[in-house]
Design a protein around this nucleic acid. Structure first.
Lengths: 203, 203
DNA sequence: CCATATTCTTACCAATCGGTACAGAACTTG
DNA sequence: CAAGTTCTGTACCGATTGGTAAGAATATGG
């Protein structure tokens, strides 16, 4: 046990509370008072433990990606390209509407736009979304090497398309879309999966 | 000409400037100072002419829908279902990346999440997005009556899928996606259009 | 018990937030 | 010209923003 007065709150749960608030209200929409109230601590405790609002957001974002983004990592490990997409889209539908936490996706609704002071947060989130697309593309390239994706298909195009649908689902979730409706979107996308990966049908 | 001191600025261009700022920074990310600076007027002039920040946003939103959403109305009037979708998606790709105004879609990035005070704006935007989907659905129902969409297809499902893609494109645009990449997404979606509208292929 | 180290609480900071009071300027009407 | 009306500019409002100084409180190591 470290020397000095012991911390009266749990870092872990406090961070979880902060994540929830940022998730619901976005970076700019969340005030320090919102945070301290939800975390059950005073302002100086927050600053001592997490730095400042921006640093706290980044820590919450790390946790979000680690925990709520776990399904993405698992999906990318599915044996077939089709399985990857299936897990990505249904995983998104479930995560985005999970009643155990706020709806939608933090990387989309955290700061899609913002004032000057939050610009670096906005860019970080955009970078994470870009990474998401990149990882799908790399997985599709692998699938193509493995003969799992037709040689004529464009992995980048497939990845962008899937990422766009997933991000659209995030917008839908932010607007209150039900899990069933998002699952239907995933189903629709999957129904055409095989066809979609073939750029041009031979005449 | 009305009695009293004449207004020293143009209502129309001032509103356009306001729209541009809200579009770039979102409702919460835009401050009164941002607005007055961009509009070239002082605070009391803004309040006298437009009410308050929220009323100004709503007026800017009206103009946005009227002008930048024109392509949606035109798209819905295309003769075939496929033509409708084609115009919707390529129109979105072009509008979302038009260099003459901010990138992305105001109804998506204006206030996807927010603090308490902007809640009514958030809901209004969500409602407009829902309307967008509804209008597509109604057009697909019409197409189905006209035999333009297979009887087995679900107009609501098609509409939701198209709306989701369009909204995903808006997120991509907010992240800096190029016009070409969004056009590619539109192309990908259209390539599978015919197949997609047939729920289950007969065995 | 003392010294040291860390956290907690209270109270505060300057800056900015959205919004407005007020006086003078600029116009029309008579 | 004078009266009436509306806009503009300055200067301000209370509330809230993110962030912190200072001292009391609580632990460990001696």
């Amino acid at each position: 046990m470290p020397i000095g007065r012991p911390r009266a709150f749990c870092l872990d749960t406090a961070l979880n509370r902060a994540l929830e608030v940022f998730w619901r209200k976005g970076y700019e929409g969340t005030s320090l008072s919102d945070l301290t109230k939800a975390m059950g601590i005073n302002r100086p405790s927050l600053y001592a433990a997490f730095g400042n609002k921006e640093a706290l957001f980044r820590k919450a974002l790390d946790r979000y990606i680690e925990e709520k983004g776990a399904y993405v990592r698992e999906a990318l490990e599915a044996p077939t390209a089709r399985g990857v997409v299936e897990r990505l889209l249904f995983g998104a539908a479930d995560m985005l509407t999970n009643p155990d936490h706020p709806v939608g996706c933090l990387t989309v609704q955290g700061a899609l736009t913002c004032g000057q002071e939050a610009e670096s947060i906005r860019q970080e989130l955009a970078g994470i979304r870009a990474q998401y697309e990149t990882r799908i593309r790399q997985r599709m390239e692998q699938a193509q090497r493995e003969g799992d994706l037709p040689p004529g298909a464009d992995p980048a195009e497939v990845a962008r398309f899937i990422a766009t649908i997933a991000q659209g689902m995030a917008v839908q979730a932010a607007g209150g879309a039900s899990r069933e409706s998002l699952r239907q979107v995933a189903e629709t996308a999957l129904r055409v999966w095989t066809r979609q990966t073939v750029p041009t049908a031979p005449a």
